[in-house]
Design a protein around this nucleic acid. Structure first.
Lengths: 139, 139
DNA sequence: GTTGTTCTCAACCAATCGGTTGAGGATCGG
DNA sequence: CCGATCCTCAACCGATTGGTTGAGAACAAC
């Protein structure tokens, strides 16, 4: 319960059935029963899956009589892509500029006076979930 | 082990420690020991996390003496965003054109002859992991 | 009302997960 | 060679996960 939204979202999409439900809901809203027909599992199991998706903020449910139509919510998807893209971009940057590595090597063998390989640790911003020494170990 | 890459990737990023490792590796490559210093868990635990990230294809490891420097691999990140973005886009489309819903309602009350609410099921492309009746239920 | 449909809750189960400790492989540096 | 360092493997543990079945809440329809 003390788990952040990003974790919940990734957990939710880690299951193939749940991803498939997302795929279906992207086409049209659907009720629990409608969804359950497509899978070889019980409706209760589908209901559980939907609960996971809902608590992750990926899906919302309204009321229509005794039906509970499910609807896809785009916002958290955006949150996920922005997280992923941030680090993908950085990784690709570092990849394309491996000349920097060369420069670092040169620096190591012939220090030109300005050793700039101790500053890069700055924009880490790991304070989102921070499984650190001090507070990590949730157990 | 019969689990697809997308599942492995989402599972890998579902853990806060693993996401933090990704954040760190996006700045610079690091060895297991270096990473382990930052967390309140044993090096063995960090090693396990790295194994998960590696098997998801998010991280690769090279050799340098007895060190195992870890490196971020952008490709699978791209795979993830393209999956997410696909459905986010579709959800947002449906959101912005809820006039279609209105049309569907009108169709229901006054069928104009062409009932076009049975065709949209076409671009589902659920054949990626397909937890279906026939083959679902992996257990 | 009663009956039927849709869905959720609760208890249970096997399997997996994130962590631990202990042992040991591989490599560097004397 | 020997010891130290870096890392992985193996066994174990408690908590969580994805599924089940059974009971029942909530509403529709008769």
């Amino acid at each position: 319960m003390a788990v952040d939204q990003l974790s919940r979202a990734f957990v939710a999409l880690a299951d193939p059935t749940r991803r498939d439900i997302v795929a279906r809901l992207s086409v049209r809203d659907a009720t629990v029963g409608e969804l359950a027909e497509s899978y070889a599992i019980s409706m209760q199991a589908v209901s559980k899956h939907l609960k996971v998706l809902e608590e992750a903020g990926l899906v919302s449910r309204s009321r229509d009589g005794q039906r509970r139509p499910c609807h896809l919510e785009p916002q958290v998807f955006e949150l996920m892509t922005s997280w992923i893209e941030r680090y993908r971009r950085q990784a690709e940057e570092r990849f394309s500029r491996l000349d920097a590595l060369l420069a670092d090597l040169a620096d190591e063998t012939a220090p030109t006076g300005e050793n700039d390989h101790d500053h890069d640790h700055s924009d880490r911003d790991r304070d989102r979930d921070r499984p650190q020494q001090s507070e990590g170990v949730p157990s």
